[in-house]
């Protein structure tokens, strides 16, 4: 598996840089999610890699080869589009075998390979169907099979599951991940759904405003966000304005809180942001004063919505740890050791 490397890749549309100086090293054989809000440049980045857009600056390398100027049809990547882009004038089998037909492979080989790929995506015997006879989930699988038809060195997917309903989407996330593990193809998926990214990826690349904000394993990005954007975008996070006094003490709303050695401090003393995951917020005899404004029983967990000096915070508990607090109660908050990340504001 060749590694993919992006060097200072930039794409400008007029004065706007959709992708702004992205430098990345993507290891081969991994499942990578490009995650970010809409308009963050993640789709443009994917299209640059596919060769569907020409970069304004920067290089794209696969292994040691510079492919920046290679046209899309000579890159031998597989791609699944958000709209799926299945050909309505071809049967399911001909759609899947289209890349082989373009390469001039004989009919017998095309049919055998199409059947093989349709088995792989669990649509056996569907080769003769028309595209419009398929359900949304089946079309999704056909698009995936087609993208894998020529054993691509890189498999690119642009929001592949966004058109599916929630249940099917979760199912396909697992299936896509299992398929990638089986085939070992380097896979790059664009998504705006952080749950999807955390479910599927070996590596998550968080983007905002055309730049890479953080790249890391899902739990790393979740537990140890590099900046306030990542903390806010991945999962739900309580972001508190605070002042860092020294490496072990912060002041929040006039109260001093001691940091534990496991807490991560990524800022210099001065004004900072504290990022605390809802599951790391505890009720304690001593701590920040807050008022309960809502209790949400979610079955698998209990969520407390809190008003902390005019700021909304959330705390999450397992049902067996459900605190005996009701709406309107005053409570004291503490943070679990290792649950606090001190970020630059």
């Amino acid at each position: 598996m060749n590694d993919l490397a992006l060097r200072d890749l930039t794409k400008r549309f007029g004065p706007v840089a959709a992708v702004d100086g992205v430098t990345l090293d993507i290891p081969g054989g991994k499942f990578i999610c490009l995650l970010g809000p809409s308009g963050c440049g993640k789709t443009t980045l994917l299209r640059l890699i596919a060769g569907l857009e020409d970069p304004s600056e920067g290089r794209i390398l696969v292994g040691d080869e510079d492919i920046t100027d290679r046209p899309a049809h000579r890159r031998d990547f597989g791609m699944v589009f958000q709209s799926l882009a299945l050909f309505p004038h071809l049967s399911v089998g001909d759609n899947v075998a289209y890349p082989l037909a373009i390469r001039g492979r004989p009919r017998a080989e095309r049919e055998r390979r199409a059947a093989e790929l349709l088995d792989l995506v669990r649509l056996p015997g569907m080769a003769g169907r028309r595209i419009h006879q398929l359900s949304g989930g089946q079309r999704q699988r056909v698009a995936i099979a087609r993208g894998l038809a020529v054993d691509p060195s890189l498999f690119l997917l642009d929001e592949p599951l966004s058109a599916l309903d929630a249940n099917l989407r979760e199912h396909m996330q697992v299936e896509l991940r299992q398929l990638q593990t089986r085939l070992g193809v380097t896979t790059l998926v664009v998504t705006h759904d952080q749950k999807e990214a955390l479910t599927m990826a070996d590596l998550v690349i968080v983007m905002d405003k055309g730049r890479v904000q953080q790249m890391g394993a899902p739990m790393e990005v979740y537990r140890d966000p590099a900046n306030a954007f990542v903390a806010g975008f991945i999962g739900s996070s309580n972001l508190l304005l605070a002042t860092l006094l020294d490496r072990t003490t912060v002041e929040v709303a006039g109260r001093r809180i001691l940091l534990s050695p496991e807490d991560r401090v990524k800022a210099e003393p001065g004004p900072v942001l504290l990022s605390v995951r809802p599951e790391d917020v505890r009720l304690a005899p001593e701590g920040l004063l807050a008022r309960v404004t809502f209790v949400r029983d979610l079955g698998e967990s209990v969520q407390l919505v809190l008003d902390q000096g005019g700021r909304e915070m959330t705390a999450l508990f397992a049902p067996r740890d459900r605190p005996a607090a009701n709406v309107g109660d005053e409570v004291r908050l503490a943070f679990a050791p290792g649950g606090v990340v001190v970020l630059r504001p």
């Binding site: 049809h73 050909f87 087609r146 038809a149």
Partner: peptide
């Protein structure tokens, strides 16, 4: 995206025109 899909699957612009 239909023509772009054909491009990513190895079809030159002319073949994309003819086959898609």
């Amino acid at each position: 995206e239909l023509a772009q899909a054909a491009r990513t699957m190895g079809a030159s612009p002319l073949r994309t025109f003819a086959t898609v």
